[in-house]
């Protein structure tokens, strides 16, 4: 896979990570617009239509909508009510929709195998999407910086065995429960990345078979 693609993915994952960490909720509109503009610029080579649909939703969001983002964000991902689109892997993969079970602990184990553990371990579930995305950025960043093969392998494996296994259903939940353009755009971005991941996987398999 081309370095340029990976660099773009890094930016997209970083953007998603900031979003899920709640760090884009209180931006002033100008900063938000600048951010989206530069994000678009970074995505010039992106061919995935779903990702572009997401970017367009961001561009089209009004300042009023951007002001309401935090409320929409909290009702989907934070609470205090029932989470409409829980941001936890285990909320989708655990058969009882219970956190901190083997699904969460296997994410923890993955971090540990990469030599990392959460500072807030046992206070926040390890499989919160913001941590998973941060971990993806870490692996990808390490690879881009050092070209260590192990890092890119872990990156692919983590996406395949964790983030991509549940993020699609999570995006469906966002679409079902929200009409906020920024939240819908986030679902598009995530879905687009999953699609790209699947395409690349297929191509890789095709290459191996050929």
């Amino acid at each position: 896979m081309g370095m340029k693609n990976l660099q773009r993915y890094y930016i997209l994952y970083l953007f998603l990570q900031k979003f899920y960490a709640g760090e884009l909720n209180r931006l002033d509109f100008e900063t938000w617009e600048n951010l989206i503009q530069s994000l678009q610029q970074d995505c010039m080579d992106e061919e995935n239509e779903t990702i572009w649909q997401g970017l367009r939703r961001f561009v089209e969001s009004t300042s009023e909508q951007q002001e309401q983002l935090e409320f929409a964000f909290n009702s989907l991902f934070v609470g205090p009510g029932k989470l409409l689109a829980p941001p936890y892997e285990s909320a989708y993969l655990n058969e009882n929709r219970v956190l901190m079970q083997q699904e969460t602990l296997s994410v923890r184990k993955f971090y540990e195998q990469a030599g990392l553990e959460l500072i807030c371990k046992n206070h926040e579930p390890d499989d919160h999407i913001a941590f998973e995305l941060e971990f993806v950025c870490y692996l990808l960043g390490q690879y881009l910086q050092t070209k260590e093969k192990e890092m890119i392998q872990m990156y692919h494996t983590f996406l395949k065995t964790h983030l991509f296994r549940w993020a699609g259903v999570h995006c469906e939940a966002i679409r079902e429960h929200s009409d906020h353009p920024i939240c819908l755009g986030i679902a598009d971005l995530l879905d687009g990345l999953i699609q790209n991941g699947q395409t690349e996987e297929t191509m890789k398999e095709g290459n191996q078979n050929g």
């Binding site: 660099q7 931006l27 951010l35 530069s38 610029q41 870490y138 910086q145």
Partner: peptide, 30 residues
């Protein structure tokens, strides 16, 4: 350094905490 050309990076880095700041290094595996 690997993202020198990125337009969004600067904006993103300015927001919140940096990548890896939620984690610390560990040697143990549960």
């Amino acid at each position: 350094d690997f993202l020198k050309g990125s337009a969004a990076l600067g904006a993103l880095v300015g927001v919140g905490t940096g990548v890896g700041s939620s984690f610390k290094k560990t040697k143990k595996v549960s």
